[in-house]
């Protein structure tokens, strides 16, 4: 089984760190993983994306031209990457920012107002985690246990006190009932 995941949005929405969390947790699950960020000026406010591959066998190419899963946190990213999604692939959309659903009929989509939910929780920085929650729920990409452990590795120690809340956000995303 190979998951090829693209996460895309604006710089500053936690797109890169969401990807790192998946890769880190995947590695802890004993899988082969790669994480490739977009880099350069995008990081300072433009668009950002990261590609994550989690597989049972060695990762051939970290550079994706198609994806089994897509998380988008802005509209340009949905416009760009919708066509990249494999048939029967999954798209998770932050519907508080993106005002449309997917156009294709051969892929599955979930609309979650993640930024709004996160803001109600008191911290918009959890939006990416909420979206990851849905992806993990639907595709079992990584185990919850190792996702939590990955948070301790990826987040700097001064943010470790936020981890229980991050896990709560993850569960909100997992249980979010859409459409």
């Amino acid at each position: 089984m190979t998951h090829e995941i693209i996460l895309a949005g604006f710089g500053g929405q936690g797109i890169l760190s969401a990807g790192r969390l998946l890769a880190q947790a995947g590695m802890m699950d004993g899988k082969q993983v790669s994480w490739l960020p977009s880099y350069g000026p995008e990081m300072r406010g433009g668009t950002a994306n990261s590609s994550v591959v989690i597989s049972d066998k060695p990762v051939d190419s970290p550079v994706l031209s198609n994806a089994s899963a897509l998380i988008v946190m802005n509209k340009p990213s949905l416009d760009k990457f919708e066509a990249w999604v494999d048939k029967d692939g999954i798209v998770i959309i932050d519907s508080s920012i993106v005002d449309r659903d997917v156009k294709r009929k051969d892929i599955e989509s979930f609309l979650i107002p993640a930024t709004k939910i996160a803001s109600d929780m008191g911290n918009t920085a959890y939006a990416n985690i909420i979206l990851l929650g849905k992806l993990i729920q639907e595709r079992q990409i990584v185990t919850l246990e190792n996702f939590e452990k990955a948070l301790y590795v990826v987040l700097p120690p001064k943010k470790h006190h936020m981890i229980p809340e991050e896990m709560e956000a993850l569960k909100i995303g997992m249980n979010y009932a859409d459409k």
Binding site: A23, L36, Y39, V59
Partner: peptide
């Protein structure tokens, strides 16, 4: 190249 420098792997 830029990809190898920026990407993460185990």
């Amino acid at each position: 190249d830029g990809i190898l420098g920026q990407m993460m792997e185990v």
